[in-house]
Design a protein around this nucleic acid. Sequence first.
DNA 1: GTTTGTGCAAAAATTTTGCAACCTA
DNA 2: TAGGTTGCAAAATTTTTGCACAAAC
Lengths: 148, 148
Amino acid sequence: MNSESTSTLSRIAEMQAGLKRAGVKLTHQRLEICREIAAVTTHPDAVTVYNHVRERVPTISLDTVYRTLWTLFELGLIEALGTLHESIRFDGNTAPHQHFVCSKCRTTYDIFDPELAKVPIGKSIRKIGQVEKTQIIVRGICRNCNAS
Amino acid sequence: MNSESTSTLSRIAEMQAGLKRAGVKLTHQRLEICREIAAVTTHPDAVTVYNHVRERVPTISLDTVYRTLWTLFELGLIEALGTLHESIRFDGNTAPHQHFVCSKCRTTYDIFDPELAKVPIGKSIRKIGQVEKTQIIVRGICRNCNAS
DNA sequence: GTTTGTGCAAAAATTTTGCAACCTA
DNA sequence: TAGGTTGCAAAATTTTTGCACAAAC
């Protein structure tokens, strides 16, 4: 992470601007976490970010990394993949369907939409590997939560 | 869960058949877990399944529930939502793109496919709530793992 | 009768939190 | 300076594992 590419630099700038806009202080630790997550395309988990940033900021702690990543996520400055603040959920319905997950109450609703099911798996994807299945997760605020 | 609907019953039958086919013994505990996950549309986590099944099988343990749910998942008899056997991953790339997750090595690859990005959000979805974003996760075995 | 599965308990792994000291704006 | 932020340590959650006993085929 010595020479940062243009796109990396612009992403870091976006994050800095976003933090400032939200009134969040730009600390040394936060800047280094932004630099790390912007520079890398490996979709790291918190511990991996921690280990990398630690090379530059030896005294940083894992909980600061978690807190900063969640802050960035909540501000929409980075993405998160996986179970967000909850455990793995199981679904006995094997008929093809999709899911709507409420960002507020975490309820998962089934979506039965034939249009959604027709996801075109192009060559660029098959180049990556052999496809087994495609999951679509629509995220948003459900009716119940929006009412309140 | 007293009167089971036809579709629930047929799903239970599928699970039983699948377990048998795989040479997995149909124990009392496994049958009750199948009955629970087939009857319910609430996408429960392992603990919720555990609590419900416990009403009928008071001596069942949580680890049996986990083991059974993973067995069913690996046999393709149920679905799982969330981070499967790994922690949450973060992604500094906020440009619209999708992901391919290898079921074997857990590597996450970026997909930049304009066709995939055009997911049609129909009325049936907007009825559930206000959509914020749509995640597509393509699961399969990546090139690296298929070679080995 | 063999082999596989279960329950217990303990461990591992992951993520969150309280609080005093510290740093940023 | 004032208030948000950090690091530490400890806790809370979630998930996995070893092993003796029990149950299924």
